[in-house]
């Protein structure tokens, strides 16, 4: 979820930026094709609602629900604050790993897996730069006016982390049970699990590349790819005997790297 996701956003940003300048190439330029803007957001505040879905999931999956307030300083530049909640969960792969690793007693020393932090509440403020204004001919007579933009900003988020390795109270090793379920085959009957949990509040950086399609006078639809970036943190050199006895073990990874949560956001905007 880290380097791979980052590549997606970086490549799109780089190429879009280059495209703008490349548009000056002779033969493509037209002195006044879309120079006149039908929609001019400058000076208008804006409210937006968005839902974010994960582009790809490895060990965690996030579903973002955000509210944004923006003020358009110019037609091409706006400041925006976004806040919301990300519903997150472990993927089936993470659950499968946790269950099978309980019984893998030949592995006495190991490290925690990367990218297991799950974001919940978050708030960021940033700048939206929309250098591209265009028209798309959907069918012969239906124009779609759009802006393409880059978004960058930062803020804070609350995070939780549930280990898939450290079970402090193994209930059934063979069946991979580390909770108080009443039925062995039904994890839904569990009220509490014994995996090691952590929580924290940490800085978050976010960047996005998106399109805003104008609809009527005040409405709009946004499509964007957004990357939420935060510093990872996990422990290494864990001893199985210690964690299964409920003792803290290992030390923090010296260079944990960054975690990227790449989302596809679908949003609605209303301009006042």
């Amino acid at each position: 979820m880290k380097a791979r996701s980052f590549r997606v956003l970086t490549s799109l940003l780089a190429t879009l930026t280059a495209l703008g300048a490349a548009a000056q190439e002779e033969g493509v330029l037209d002195s006044a094709v879309v120079r006149n803007r039908l929609y001019r957001p400058a000076g208008h505040p804006e409210l937006s609602l968005s839902v974010g879905l994960p582009v790809q999931t490895h060990l965690t999956a996030h579903y973002f629900f955000d509210v944004g307030l923006a003020y358009n300083l110019f037609d091409t530049l706006a400041v925006e604050a976004r806040a919301g909640y990300a519903a997150s969960r472990h993927t089936g792969l993470a659950r499968s790993i946790s269950e099978s690793f309980l019984d893998r007693q030949d592995k006495k020393i190991t490290d925690e897996l990367e990218d297991l932090w799950q974001m919940n509440f978050h708030g960021v403020a940033g700048v939206r730069w929309a250098p591209v204004y265009g028209k798309l001919s959907l069918v012969s007579d239906i124009p779609a006016h759009f802006q393409a933009y880059l978004w960058a900003g930062g803020g804070v988020g609350s995070f939780k982390r549930k280990s898939v390795i450290q079970c402090s109270h193994v209930v059934d090793r063979t069946a991979g049970v580390c909770d108080d379920r009443t039925s062995l085959d039904d994890r839904g009957t569990a009220r509490e699990d014994f995996w090691v949990h952590e929580t924290r509040v940490a800085p978050v950086v976010s960047g996005a590349l998106g399109f805003r399609f104008f609809i009527l006078d005040k409405h709009g639809v946004k499509l964007e790819v957004r990357d939420w970036i935060f510093r990872d943190s996990y422990r290494v050199n864990l001893l199985r005997d210690d964690w299964e006895a409920g003792r803290e073990t290992g030390e923090k990874a010296p260079s944990p790297g960054l975690t990227h949560l790449v989302q596809f956001d679908l949003g609605y905007t209303f301009s006042f």
């Binding site: 703008g20 300048a21 490349a22 548009a23 000056q24 006044a32 006149n36 001019r40 104008f214």
Partner: peptide
């Protein structure tokens, strides 16, 4: 391509929008 493109002059093209002024007066959509 972005580097090559700098300095090129735009080429006027036909169409009614070619005559549309570049600087609008009204700020509202």
């Amino acid at each position: 391509l972005a580097q090559v493109s700098s300095g090129e002059q735009p080429v006027p093209a036909p169409g009614p929008e070619s005559a549309i002024p570049p600087e609008p007066v009204s700020a509202s959509p």
